[in-house]
Design a protein around this nucleic acid. Structure first.
Length: 270
DNA sequence: CTTACCGCCTGTCGGC
DNA sequence: TGCCGACAGGCGGTAA
């Protein structure tokens, strides 16, 4: 489900709902694990701690208190809701109750998500190997060009590799490559300096536009306010196989690249 | 080291 | 109507 724009919108919606500054009262675990075990440290350590910061790193959401950081990954189907009542729905796995009566509930049907507690300043296994943030100034065409030298993997796999650059998933990889005019199967090392510059720029643009549109809702993405995104209506290639390219009129193609459905325009992309 | 594939889960959809 | 396989915004482990 969620790529960088969706996680960024979850972060912003949590901020808007006013949970920052609130103090945790108790934690309820409704099952023992997601992708990894739901540690008892959550129930033991969080009560009395105040939520000081709500941040995004890559596709992770970081909820930090004085002493801890809750590291949350939404996987394919994870979502956070802010509730005042106690009504739980199917696949609600964790409830974080504040003293105010509000609570944060993590729901995840497929349970590919992660929810773990770490000491605030400590490094942890989820964040330590992540690559550069694509919206940061450090990520640019020259850096991408250098990083791709000698790499034989397809450029789409490269930009989806979270050790290289973070936040880009299956949707925005196809969309950025279309905008840059580069075919997904091109080996990373074969990109020219100009193509690397175009691709870095395209990644930034598509992510920023998607953030502004509230993300993409194909099936079940919602921000923590229950609102859907609208960027799916502006996809130029993703999920549009067989349709005409809006730029050149050629028929958009699709195929599987390392197991992921991939979309491109055979005329606009080389 | 890099790269490709499998498996983890549930829900939904299309074909028969 | 139901059953079955394929597929879905991700990613870690493993094998080559």
């Amino acid at each position: 489900m969620p790529e960088l724009p969706e996680v960024e919108n979850v972060k912003r919606s949590l901020e808007a709902l006013g949970v920052r500054g609130q103090t945790f009262e108790r934690v309820e675990l409704h099952r023992a694990n997601l992708r990894t075990p739901l540690a008892a440290a959550l129930t033991r350590e969080l009560p009395g701690q105040t939520l000081m910061a709500i941040e995004r790193r890559a596709k992770f959401l970081l909820l930090s208190t004085e002493r801890f950081s809750i590291v949350s990954h939404l996987g394919m189907t994870g979502s956070w809701r802010v509730l005042s009542g106690t009504e739980l729905i199917k696949h609600d796995h964790v409830s974080l109750h504040f003293r105010s009566g509000l609570h944060l509930v993590f729901n995840d049907p497929r349970r590919f998500g992660v929810l773990e507690l770490f000491a605030r300043e400590a490094s942890n296994r989820w964040l330590e190997h992540l690559g550069v943030e694509p919206l940061s100034p450090e990520f640019n065409g020259e850096r991408l060009f250098t990083a791709t030298r000698g790499v034989r993997t397809p450029i789409k796999s490269f930009i989806m590799d979270q050790k290289r650059v973070v936040g880009v998933g299956n949707i925005y990889a196809s969309e950025a490559l279309f905008r840059a005019g580069v075919r997904p199967r091109r080996r990373a090392a074969r990109l020219t300096r100009e193509e690397a510059a175009a691709l870095a720029q395209a990644i930034k643009e598509v992510l920023l536009e998607a953030i502004a549109a509230g993300g993409s809702t194909i099936r079940d993405y919602r921000n923590s306010n229950g609102e859907q995104g609208s960027f799916q209506s502006r996809f130029r290639v993703y999920d549009r196989a067989g349709e005409d390219c809006g730029h050149c009129g050629a028929v958009i193609k699709n195929g599987f690249l390392t197991g992921r459905n991939t979309f491109w325009c055979p005329r606009c992309q080389r």
